[in-house]
Nucleic acid binder design. Structure first.
Lengths: 237, 237
DNA sequence: ATCCCTTCGTAGCGACGTTACGGTCGATCC
DNA sequence: GGATCGACCGTAACGTCGCTACGAAGGGAT
């Protein structure tokens, strides 16, 4: 087998278990059965090796993505792309951190390719007349949000234990970029009685739409408390 | 001068010029005129030193933020907080990377404090009935987008040469999480249904203004149910 | 003055990324 | 066929890193 492949395989394996800083070139060389100078002649640098590892991993991930042909709905493709991005980040956390953390001086080609891919989808959205902003700007907005969601989940798992927040962020960003501009400032903060009004509102909405996550008895007790809270301000008729 | 302060000053100065990996404890000790064991007895670790540096820098930044009292418009406060976050990141890039990149094993207290601060503002939004999702979820969404925008600008300056994309992302996220103050009539809020928003609103208002007509135990159970109802409309991909 | 306890600097350890140097081996030329 | 040369590769080393064991210096109590 090629020495380059052996080194890349060994480095990939080690990088799956530890962060890039904890993967030493010595360990890579030993795992690959190769002397140190070989590694440096092939990749020049530890950074070069890591970049090559990330690029190869991302290339292999792109194969599955290229198989999925663009559908007729570019916005759906956009959301699929977001979800794929999140899944790649969660499946290969150390590879992903190398792509989007500044640990590497030169960003790996994988990052640029991901950017270009997103840009392509947004170009199709723009061609369909669905974008409210130029596709370059939309690319930056979506990519920054997507990277932020992924990095947040990777670096603070205890604060982001659930992927669903990412779906919410995804819809927030994409909906506001693809729907006609609706930037009405919510200035009219009509603040009346705080708790009673909110309680009355919730009670009414629960009556119109009975909750499925609560038992009938719980819902009944909840309604009773809401009544108490709604009356707590001034007695309403 | 205290040795601790001398070390922190030296480390801060060096960290302003180079990334954390390129700041050696030897250089810090020499710049501070202190032996190496002093540093390790005071901070335990290089990571401990860096965390202390970041915390002190962030504390000093918080002073200006604490001076600005919360205004009557919590959504405006929210946007101001976003912009302050961006400015801090651009003003102290290496400090910021330490806060939100995984280079530190233990996240500095500054990160948790920033999270708590954002959560507080969003609690006020929720209490005003302006939030369409529970404040915890909104905190995650806004924080992830904000961090993503800042880290994108820091690590890929050539791709994000303009801060204005951050303002666009900010408005996208915040506008979609906030709705004009609701007073009582259930105007449809698209996805998620009307119940979750109303439940989140009431929960926040109860947190700001504990009910006197319910016992502590009842209030706790009520909060639990409200949390369930607020999450009942979660988007499921 | 002596003793002890705290405090701090020198010197060193192991591991890291990286590279100079010498040896091995197959191809080429007489 | 044997000698020569050049490409290739492993050993061993260099400088630097984070970190720490140990001995010297200083100050209070007796």
């Amino acid at each position: 087998m090629d020495a380059r492949e052996k080194i890349l395989d060994a480095a990939t394996e080690l990088l799956a278990r530890a962060s890039a800083a904890d993967v030493s070139t010595r360990a890579v060389c030993e795992a690959a059965g190769v002397g140190a100078p070989m590694l440096y002649r092939l990749f020049g640098d530890k950074a070069g090796l890591l970049a090559a590892v990330v690029d190869r991993g991302f290339e292999q991930y792109l194969a599955s993505k290229r198989a999925a042909r663009p559908s007729a709905d570019p916005v759906a493709d956009l959301k699929r792309g977001w979800d794929n991005h999140m899944r790649f980040a969660l499946d290969h956390p150390n590879h992903y951190r190398l792509m989007y953390s500044p640990e590497l001086a030169t960003p790996p080609a994988a990052a640029k390719e991901a950017h270009a891919l997103l840009h392509g989808v947004l170009e199709r959205c723009a061609a369909a007349g669905l974008l409210t902003v130029p596709p370059e700007a939309a690319t930056r907005v979506v990519m920054a949000a997507n990277v932020g969601a992924a990095l947040s989940m990777l670096t603070r798992p205890e604060q982001y234990p659930d992927i669903r927040f990412a779906a919410r962020l995804r819809d927030s960003v994409i909906d506001s970029l693809t729907s006609p501009a609706d930037t009405g400032e919510p200035h009219d903060t009509g603040r009346g009685g705080a708790v009673p009004a909110a309680a009355a509102t919730l009670a009414a909405r629960l009556r119109a739409e009975p909750p499925q996550r609560l038992t009938v008895v719980e819902a009944a007790l909840l309604q009773q408390w809401l009544g108490t809270l709604a009356d707590s301000g001034e007695p309403t008729a």
